[in-house]
Nucleic acid binder design. Structure first.
Lengths: 126, 126
DNA sequence: ATACTGTTATAATATGTATATAACAGCAAG
DNA sequence: CTTGCTGTTATATACATATTATAACAGTAT
């Protein structure tokens, strides 16, 4: 799994790292039970500081994407708290849809784009 | 139109303001051609600084939601650059869908939620 | 002239981000 | 038991961003 950090982006480094790991899981490049590189190793690989990686891992742990095993390090372990995930999804989508609505993007176009992203990039389990 | 700022949120104040104005437009609480309160008045109303409001207005202007009329102040004026809007939408949705996918939220549940948000909150034009 | 617009400039403060160096406790393997 | 790897924590520093404050300017409407 290749992780690329854009140092010119206005998105925080730890945030980019979080998103890319989440997308990696969704795209099945990381599998449940698999260990991530250690904070020090990941830091060296992507060229950022250990603490920045640690912050990303901590957030992912708190959001239920990782668990920490003293022996094996950061392990992919999805805690599918669906209630909370649905609330967050609704909140995200409301802003996203509002923007799209203002720009005259139709509901159908959005549905179509979701199918396209889901079918091409997301692991299939449902 | 009631705008509420959450001072305990980790989202920047100007960002909250941007989002709420965009949602206000999408929900038809603000109409094309309507003037927003002046930066000073909006600042007083929601309890933040004039410059924070000015930043929000500047961003909205740059993103094509407002235009500035010397006489009438900040006026709702949608510049529907659909190409750019679609690119941004795709980028937003990719992260959002990845999160949802990890949490075992199905594609159907997302489609359903989008219909619900769109039908209940968004102005209908399509 | 007065009172509003948006805009700009400057400064001060607070918060968030990123890095550097160092240390600690838990665990595995030699 | 020592060595080397985990995550975690602490502290310090540098930098960027966010927020507020005070002030001024050029338009415009009344």
């Amino acid at each position: 799994m290749i992780i690329e950090i854009d140092f010119n982006s206005d998105e925080a480094l730890y945030q980019q790292l979080c998103n890319q790991i989440i997308m990696g899981i969704a795209m099945d490049h990381f599998h449940e039970g698999e260990s991530l590189p250690s904070v020090r190793q990941m830091a060296e690989t992507v060229g950022i500081n250990m603490h920045t990686v640690n912050k990303a891992y901590s957030i992912l742990k708190q959001q239920g994407f990782l668990q920490v095993d003293r022996r094996r390090g950061a392990v992919i372990a999805i805690d599918a708290d669906k209630m909370y995930a649905l609330e967050e999804l609704r909140s995200d989508l409301t802003v996203t849809l509002a923007k799209s609505c203002c720009k005259n993007i139709t509901k159908d176009e959005i549905h179509q784009m979701i199918d396209e992203i889901y079918d091409n990039y997301m692991r299939s389990f449902s």
